[in-house]
Write a protein that binds this DNA or RNA. Structure first.
Lengths: 135, 135
DNA sequence: TCATAATATCTCGTATAGCGATATAATCGT
DNA sequence: ACGATTATATCGCTATACGAGATATTATGA
């Protein structure tokens, strides 16, 4: 534990502005997802499936690790997202314990519609955060 | 709506890595807050109060705007955080409709203990995100 | 003045998301 | 064969978030 200088009012104000920028991005992203009738978590689940390397499709445990949530949280999220017809559960033929996830046609379309603008918005976020960190 | 190039597998993988970095920061921050018996939202409420400019202390409506949540969400968050003894509600003497928020001594201490390491971690996050955005 | 509007907060009901504990099913190791 | 491990599912609970509507206070207009 290193000794730290006392934080000033200005330090706290800057910390608040930084967190506000992160919040604004998440909020904007959630609104974009909502416009496609998705929650933010459902959007992230679609991205975790689409962005997963390899041909086989990720397991529930793998997306739970990607999303930094407990496996049972991922089960509930997969349940709700599957009910919307955005993803499919498929038992792995070589290991029947494993469920592999795949995007449905609708899921693929919705994720595609969201992704390009997210690339742009993330670039903006990076620029603003970098500026704030450098004071 | 400008026409956009088709996103590749690599684009989706990069998008996933970017969101994963943001998630890791939020997850780390939530764990730091939990170590102080705070939820992530409660921590952000403390910061919104501490980082608010002016001498008078923010109203519930103001912190709701800072946190990008509806006012009734902020009411519930303030209720729970006040029950923990971290903040105080004070009716504005000049306008009895308004509730102004202030940190308690315990709230101030917990926020202080969290903030220095958050400054450092945010600097790391900014560097990693910047690198990923620039490919 | 007195009714009404505007503002600020609070209450109630419901949904998502998250976790710990526990259960079930399939596979692996010996 | 069979106990241990792995993967997923279920149950019960809390926190967060919102919409709708209620209450209290202040401001405004006829």
């Amino acid at each position: 534990m290193t000794s730290r200088p006392h934080l000033t009012d200005a330090d706290y104000a800057r910390l608040l502005r930084l967190r506000t920028q992160l919040r604004k991005f998440e909020h904007w992203s959630a609104q974009q997802a909502a416009a496609m009738d998705l929650t933010a978590s459902q959007h992230q689940l679609l991205l975790a499936i689409r962005g997963h390397g390899g041909s086989k499709g990720p397991t529930i445990g793998e997306v739970a690790a990607d999303l930094l949530v407990a496996h049972n949280t991922a089960v509930g999220l997969v349940d709700r997202t599957q009910e919307l017809g955005l993803i499919d559960r498929e038992r792995d033929p070589s290991d029947h314990r494993v469920v592999r996830l795949a995007l449905s046609a609708v899921g693929r379309e919705k994720l595609n519609a969201l992704s390009a603008e997210h690339v742009e918005e993330l670039a903006r976020l990076a620029a603003v955060v970098d500026k704030l960190v450098r004071n």
